[in-house]
Computed example of a mutant assay.
Amino acid sequence: MDFPALKSEITALQMSLFAMEEENLWIADTATACQDLDAPDQHKMHETTLDAIDYSMESLYLRYLKKRMPMETYTAEQYATCLMQLVDSIPDQFINVVSIMKFSDVLPRDQKVARALFPTQSTENGEESADQNEDPDRQANEHEYDIRTFVFLDLETTGLDTTTDNITELCLIAVDREQITELGNEVVEHEYGEFPKVPRVQDKLNILIDPLSMIPNEVSRITKIDKENLEVRNKKPFSYETSMILRSFLDRQAHPICLVAHNGDAFDYLILNNHLDRVKADQTIWKEIYCADSLTGVRELRQPCERRPNGLQYLMKEVGVHHSQLLPHSAEGDTIALMVVVKLFPQNLPMWLDQHKRRFK
């Protein structure tokens, strides 16, 4: 079901997967593969027994991993993680039976329905398409002072020199302002204990990047990213295409947008700007984006007599969360940690970010 729906939307938008080399993009169905795994034993089973076998994700997860899927698995990302764990539990068997096909051979769903949902080009009588019209959210909120979307950002790099070191991992999590300012102090059960409830509606982008330079052993020890791993997994360097992926991600969000990074003014924003300049990125979207440094905000909001560390891992403990519940020193883990700190910090950190934002470019 997932593949035809995806193909339908891409076809309706008259797009191609050129960045993924569509002719070389293959797909596989885990349910079909698991059915094929059972095939050798089918002659031993009664026909009614075969019909009763449940090949749902929940059932297969329980069968092969010997445990139930986590109760909090309700997002596409969490579901995909469980799918990866399922395949990882039977890698040899899966590879031996899996049937693959080209994504280009997938038949999309009804195109009339898809085109009605996703109009993209001007019609013959001159009607404008959806992507030619100005974003109504952006237009309606140009006069508003408050930021509509906070985009939390973290980078992993080869070192701390913002002019010569390179990005190895980049994560952006975009969340509507109200989900940060209005979400209470609810918690959810996590495998490592209770964890603050994070916004359900969020956009996330996480990219691993080949830095085209050596990664010091000490850095690899901390981030768990090394040059060989990136090369073996065919991760690509930061490029103009990477900048367009970032642009598309930001352009999807409700404007005005504010990037939020911990120590961003002294590190993240500088190194990201350098990378964008190196690849001659289109600056249009970046000139519209604001940014603010949460580290500066925490320092200014504290009482002058307070002399406490302001690093992300210390702030996590301060708001009652252990950083080890995430993936510390991964771009994604640190970005989630930053979102939690901004949400739970005793003083009004979102308001400070609003009042002290500046243009990214």
Rank of each mutant, 00 (worst) to 15 (best):
D36N: 11
G333P: 01
E124I: 15
R138Q: 14
D154S: 08
K204V: 04
G184R: 01
W26H: 13
N217C: 07
T75S: 05
V113Y: 05
E332W: 06
S324E: 12
I90W: 01
L172V: 01
V279Q: 00
Q42K: 09
E182R: 12
N24G: 13
S239N: 11
P346K: 10
W352L: 14
L246E: 02
D36W: 00
V198M: 06
L212A: 10
Y61V: 12
L353G: 05
N273C: 12
M351G: 08
N206V: 14
I207L: 06
I215Y: 02
K343S: 13
E288V: 04
A114N: 09
I53C: 04
G333D: 02
R302L: 07
P91M: 03
N229I: 09
P40L: 07
Q303A: 06
R68C: 09
D92H: 05
V279P: 01
V98K: 06
D54I: 01
I245F: 01
L170Q: 06
T73I: 05
V341I: 07
L17H: 04
I336V: 09
D226R: 00
E241T: 13
A76D: 11
E128Y: 08
K227Y: 10
Q111H: 03
S243N: 01
R138N: 08
L17T: 07
L155Y: 04
R247H: 08
P256W: 02
S129D: 02
R307W: 05
L301C: 02
K280Q: 11
L62G: 08
I27S: 00
E318A: 15
D38N: 10
